[in-house]
Simulated scan of single mutants.
Amino acid sequence: MKTVLSAVAIVVSLFSGGASPALATTNINVSAAANFCAPPNPGDPTPLGDLITAFQTANPSYTVTLVQCGATGTLASQITGGNSLGVDLFLAANSSTPASLASGYGVGSPFTYAVGTLAFWSKSVNVSAGYSSSTYSKVAVANPSTAPYGAAASQLLTGRYGLTAPLSSNSLVNIYSNIDLTFQAVNSGSETVGFVALSQICSAGTYPSSGYALVYPPTDTSVSPVIYNYDPINQAGLRIAHSRTSAQDTELNAFVSYLTDHTLSPQSQMITTLLNYCYGVP
């Protein structure tokens, strides 16, 4: 079993958008799951980046700073371990982690901002027939204990395909610490196949942006009998209890409203972003 221990931690303000530093009067800090904030390739757009740019353009006196991008469990540990990064808003890749933090570390209730989907992906081989342990000697997955997409892959591999749990001890599986590193392993060719977030291989609503892919929905209705693959990936956010000015609270609430605006006509920026990256609308 190969375990990659490095994690994505981006402590920068990645997205300046249209806001001028001279005009900016308030700032909020965000930590987000890697599928929503890590670029597939350096310089590529990301869902969160698109949203921050549009939000700041519409609100020149606001800035939003991405302070951490990685596995949901890692982000949660930073918050519960003292929140040294001053996170105001936590965007997870599941609903259970924000729910578990709400009573002790949150303000208000968690909210669902996107619905994710698992994809089986390769840069070099046609995977349209789906996963098979007899075909692929190794498959890359994100760490099921910290990454929700890894947990979904674990459910799929052990439930549908009969791989022995835990995957950390299974010789057919290579585990990476978050979904971005899983994607990068397949993207670089060091892994032939892997389970990634559909959003990572989607551009302008079309997938795959490169290579070959097969989408695995939570419930597969294309076969009979219907097959349950994994629990739905409802990605939820939570306002984090943290010292803020009233102006920062106002900005935080405005950004949350932006992320939960599912207006179809005219189409909101959030709907546009979700569709562009192949997310489902909550």
Rank of each mutant, 00 (worst) to 15 (best):
136 Y>Q: 04
130 G>E: 03
190 S>Q: 13
207 Y>F: 15
126 N>M: 01
246 S>M: 01
18 G>F: 11
137 S>Q: 14
190 S>V: 11
266 P>I: 02
55 F>R: 04
266 P>K: 05
86 G>S: 07
15 F>P: 01
85 L>P: 07
260 T>Q: 04
192 T>V: 15
76 A>V: 01
28 I>G: 02
254 A>C: 06
91 L>F: 07
20 S>D: 15
22 A>L: 08
167 L>P: 10
209 S>G: 05
226 V>M: 01
36 F>C: 08
160 R>G: 11
121 W>N: 02
23 L>Q: 07
9 A>L: 02
133 S>R: 13
244 R>A: 09
236 A>C: 04
187 N>L: 11
76 A>G: 09
8 V>S: 08
175 I>P: 08
177 S>C: 01
264 L>V: 12
181 L>Q: 14
206 T>F: 09
90 F>I: 10
91 L>A: 11
82 G>S: 12
12 V>R: 11
17 G>K: 11
71 A>Q: 09
14 L>V: 02
142 A>E: 05
23 L>I: 04
223 V>R: 06
206 T>W: 07
247 A>D: 04
82 G>V: 05
238 L>E: 04
162 G>P: 12
40 P>Q: 10
259 L>E: 08
13 S>M: 02
271 I>M: 10
166 P>C: 08
252 L>Y: 10
204 A>W: 02
84 S>A: 10
231 D>P: 08
177 S>A: 12
148 P>D: 03
178 N>D: 15
257 S>Y: 08
281 V>K: 12
202 C>S: 13
28 I>M: 10
105 Y>L: 06
179 I>Y: 13
11 V>H: 12
267 Q>C: 14
190 S>A: 04
210 S>I: 04
182 T>V: 03
137 S>Y: 08
78 Q>R: 00
42 P>F: 02
95 S>D: 13
80 T>I: 06
39 P>R: 14
67 V>T: 05
138 K>G: 02
251 E>Q: 14
50 D>S: 15
52 I>R: 10
67 V>Y: 00
132 S>H: 13
129 A>G: 15
78 Q>Y: 06
75 L>T: 00
217 P>Q: 09
64 V>T: 09
81 G>S: 11
57 T>M: 09
208 P>W: 08
130 G>Q: 09
203 S>A: 12
111 F>L: 11
26 T>M: 11
64 V>M: 00
145 S>C: 00
27 N>S: 13
68 Q>A: 07
106 G>F: 07
105 Y>N: 06
257 S>E: 05
120 F>P: 00
149 Y>Q: 15
31 S>M: 14
222 S>G: 02
195 F>G: 00
177 S>P: 06
227 I>E: 14
136 Y>C: 05
254 A>H: 03
192 T>H: 03
108 G>K: 06
270 M>Y: 01
230 Y>N: 03
177 S>T: 13
101 L>T: 14
129 A>Y: 03
236 A>D: 14
182 T>A: 07
135 T>Y: 14
104 G>M: 03
276 N>G: 11
178 N>S: 14
160 R>S: 09
207 Y>P: 11
44 D>Y: 15
60 P>N: 09
226 V>I: 07
47 P>T: 02
41 N>I: 10
177 S>L: 03
282 P>S: 13
222 S>Y: 05
27 N>T: 14
75 L>R: 08
272 T>E: 03
16 S>V: 12
199 S>T: 15
14 L>N: 13
274 L>H: 00
127 V>F: 06
205 G>A: 07
